[in-house]
Simulated scan of single mutants.
Amino acid sequence: MLISHFLHGPISAYPRDYVDGAHQELHVHREAQLLYAVSGVMRLVTAEGAWIIPPTRAVWIPPWVEHEIFMSGEVRMRSLFVAAEYSPANLQGCCVLAVTPLLRELIVRAVQGPEQARNPLIQQLMLEELAALENLPLHIPMPTDRRLQRICLALLEAPDHPNSLEDWAQQVGASTRTLARLFQQQVRMNFNAWRQQLRLMEALPRLIAGESVQHVAKVLGYGSARAFSSMFRRLLGDNPRDYLNALNQFSAINASR
């Protein structure tokens, strides 16, 4: 399904709110889209994989990429639609981005109405900020090899599954070396890194919903909260409590707008 938006120059801005469990069905845009989460958690799914978008973060979707979106919690979505010819050259694929305070303020201003979104100074600043955003490791790529797909789908169903790559090799009828090579070729990371990415994506909605670090660590198969926190810090740069405190501060600011 094609959904197109009237562009006020290079960029248009649209606010939408969703209830917990809402779903945007598969669709495409002629324009690129930046999905920004003021509150709630969004999960973007394409044929290439899945991306998790926690509050105060955004996901970039290039033009003509078919996608669907799943909402967790009450989602306040703020979207920027960017004309294809103005898309930053460094944003060629879907990715989760760390939104700067300046871009956050520009988005808040732009969604107030067409007269704000049409402001050429706001539009130029948004384009410059978009091109400089940090890419975050919140992506789960999906392989095409049927043996890897079997493993990945099983882990999507049960992220705490304890099987090692050697265990999976026996189940899917391939050598450990073959599976390791295919993981690197098809998802550009090794098996353990892919599983860590998956567990991180599963952890964020739970933590944001208020589950304790200890409970989330146990549910996802970690032997201790410390081991889980170490993984979390390595991938996102903060321990879970500091990360959530920062999210809550940003969300409180945004909720007052």
Rank of each mutant, 00 (worst) to 15 (best):
Leu136Ser: 04
Asp160Val: 01
Pro162His: 03
Leu153Pro: 00
Ala131Ile: 11
Leu156Lys: 11
Ile151Arg: 00
Glu166Asn: 14
Asp160Leu: 00
Leu153Ala: 12
Asn135Tyr: 09
Pro143Met: 05
Pro162Phe: 00
Glu134Met: 03
Asn135Ser: 15
Pro143Trp: 03
Met142Glu: 10
Thr144Val: 14
Thr144Phe: 04
Glu157Gly: 09
Trp168Gly: 02
Leu165Asp: 12
Arg150Glu: 10
Pro159Gln: 04
Glu166Gly: 15
Ala169Leu: 11
Ala131His: 09
Ala169Trp: 10
Glu128Met: 14
Leu148Cys: 02
Pro162Ser: 12
Leu130Gly: 00
Glu129Trp: 13
Asp167Asn: 14
Glu134Trp: 10
Leu127Phe: 09
His161Ala: 11
Asn163Ala: 15
Gln170Trp: 15
Ala132Leu: 15
Ala131Pro: 06
Pro143Ile: 04
Met142Tyr: 13
Pro162Ile: 08
Ala154Lys: 04
Leu156Phe: 05
Pro141Asn: 11
Leu155Trp: 02
Ala131Lys: 13
Ala169Ile: 12
Leu125Glu: 13
Asn163Phe: 13
Leu148Val: 03
Glu166His: 10
Thr144Tyr: 08
Leu153Thr: 06
Pro137Cys: 02
Glu157Tyr: 10
Ala158Met: 10
Asp145His: 11
Ile140Gly: 02
His161Val: 02
Ile140Val: 15
Leu133Ser: 04
Leu138Lys: 13
Thr144Pro: 00
Ser164Trp: 00
Pro159Thr: 06
Ile151Trp: 00
Trp168Leu: 08
Asp145Thr: 07
Ile140Leu: 15
Ile140Tyr: 06
Leu138Asn: 09
Pro159Ile: 00
Met142Cys: 08
His161Met: 01
Met142Asn: 04
Leu156Gln: 11
Cys152Thr: 15
Leu127His: 06
Pro141Trp: 08
His161Tyr: 03
Pro137Ala: 11
His161Arg: 12
Leu153Asp: 09
Leu127Thr: 09
Asn163Trp: 08
Leu136Gly: 07
Glu166Tyr: 07
Gln124Lys: 12
Ser164Ala: 13
Pro137His: 03
Leu136Asp: 00
Gln124Leu: 11
Leu156Arg: 14
Ser164Cys: 05
Asp160Phe: 03
Asp160Ala: 15
Gln149Phe: 02
Leu133Arg: 07
Leu165Gly: 12
Ala154Ile: 01
Thr144Ile: 06
Asn135Pro: 00
Leu130Asp: 00
Leu138Val: 03
Leu127Tyr: 07
Glu129Ala: 11
Ala158His: 14
His161Lys: 11
Leu125His: 02
Ala131Gln: 14
Arg146Cys: 05
Asp145Ser: 14
Leu153Tyr: 13
Glu129Ile: 08
Glu166Thr: 15
His161Pro: 00
Leu148Arg: 02
Leu148His: 01
Leu125Cys: 05
Gln149Asp: 01
Trp168Lys: 07
Leu148Lys: 01
Leu153Glu: 12
Leu153Val: 09
Ile151Asp: 03
Ala154Pro: 02
Leu165Thr: 10
Pro162Asn: 07
Leu165Arg: 07
Asp167Gly: 15
Leu127Asn: 07
Met126Arg: 06
Leu125Phe: 08
Leu165Ser: 11
Pro162Glu: 04
Pro141Leu: 09
His161Asp: 15
Leu133Gln: 05
Ser164Tyr: 01
Leu156Gly: 05
Leu165Trp: 06
Glu134Lys: 15
Ala158Gly: 08
Leu148Trp: 01
Arg147Gln: 12
Cys152Tyr: 04
Pro137Val: 02
Leu156Asn: 02
Ala154Tyr: 05
Cys152Asn: 10
Gln170Gly: 15
Trp168Cys: 05
Asn135Gly: 03
Leu148Gly: 00
